[in-house]
Nucleic acid binder design. Structure first.
Lengths: 153, 153
DNA sequence: TCTGAAAGTTTTCATCC
DNA sequence: GGATGAAAACTTTCAGA
C-alpha cells in the first residue's frame, strides 16, 4: 500500500487521537467525511491500522511500577528462545517485549501494580526460567514519554 | 479514584479494544450503555483515561526500524537532564523515553523509517548531545509485543 | 448516588453521482 | 472524490431504587 500526503497526515492524527469524527478529520486534511472514511477502511483492510485502544495515564494509576528488564539466554538450542517468548507473552503485565541484537537478547517492559507483584513476576520470568543466563532490571523513575506512535514517512 | 470490579473489567477491555460500542461493553459487564458511558466519562475527568489512539501494525508499515537505546549522561549539573529530556521529546520518532535507575540513566525507544533516518537521529540525540557520556543501541529484530497496557489491579 | 430507559442529537455507514 | 439518506451510536434527561 502506498501513501500520499493526506494519508500521512491522517495516520499521524489517528495515532495521536482516534476519537475525532470523520468530518473533523476531513476538515483538517481538506477532504469530505466520506473520503476520509474510505481511506480509513483502506488502512484497515491493508492491515496497516491494527486497532483502537484506550491509553491510561501511568502516573494516575495507583502504584504502577514500570521496569525495563534486559535478558540474555543460554547459548544452546534455539528452542530456548521460543519457550522464553511463550512465557513472556502469557503474562499480561509484560507490556512490551523485543527480541534485540547486541549485548542482550531481549528487552522486556514490565508494568505491575506494586513492587510485590513485580518481584513475583521477575522471579517467574527471569529467575525461575531455566534458560536465562543473566538479566538486569532498570526501574522507571519517570516515564517521560510512552506510546506506540510510528512514523509513516 | 477507587475502582470496583466492573471498573477493572471496563478499563481492561478498553485498553485492548476501544472501538466496542457502549452497549456491547455494557453487555459484557452487566450494565446499561448509559451506565458504561458515565463510568468512562468518570475515568476521563479523573485523568485515568488519557486518550484514544489508533495503533499501526509495525510489521505492515514500510521499512520501520525499531531500536532500544540505553543512555548515561555526564554526572555534573542536574540541568543536563532537563536539556536531554527536552531534546528527546522534541523528536516524534522517540516513541518512548524512560528515566531509569541502575547502570543507565535513560531508556529510549526509537521508531524510524529506514536506517538512514535512524543514524541521523542517533547522531543528533546521542552523539552530538554535549552531555551524553555513553550510549548503546540494540536494534529490534522482532517486536514480540508492543503496547501500552497497564494493569489496574 | 447510581441505575436503566427513552428522547433527541450526532456520527457513521452504504450507496448514489 | 462528494453527497445523501438510513442505521447506528452517542448524549442528555428523567424517574426509580
Amino acid at each position: 500500500m502506498t501513501f500520499d500526503e493526506i494519508d500521512h497526515r491522517l495516520l499521524d492524527t489517528l495515532q495521536r487521537d482516534a476519537s475525532r469524527t470523520l468530518q473533523a478529520l476531513g476538515e483538517d486534511v481538506g477532504l469530505s467525511a466520506s473520503a476520509v472514511q474510505r481511506r480509513i477502511n483502506r488502512y484497515r483492510s491493508a492491515g496497516v491500522l491494527a486497532r483502537h485502544v484506550a491509553v491510561l495515564e501511568a502516573r494516575r494509576t495507583a502504584d504502577i511500577v514500570l521496569a525495563v528488564v534486559l535478558v540474555t539466554l543460554e547459548r544452546e538450542s534455539s528452542g530456548h528462545h521460543d519457550a522464553f517468548a511463550q512465557r513472556l507473552l502469557a503474562v499480561p503485565e509484560v507490556q512490551q517485549a523485543y527480541d534485540v541484537s547486541g549485548d542482550w537478547d531481549y528487552v522486556v517492559v514490565l508494568a505491575t501494580i506494586g513492587m510485590a507483584r513485580h518481584s513475583e513476576l521477575a522471579q517467574h520470568l527471569f529467575k525461575d526460567a531455566p534458560n536465562v543466563k543473566r538479566y538486569t532490571t532498570m526501574f522507571v523513575l519517570d516515564p517521560l514519554r510512552t506510546g506506540t506512535y510510528l512514523p509513516t514517512r
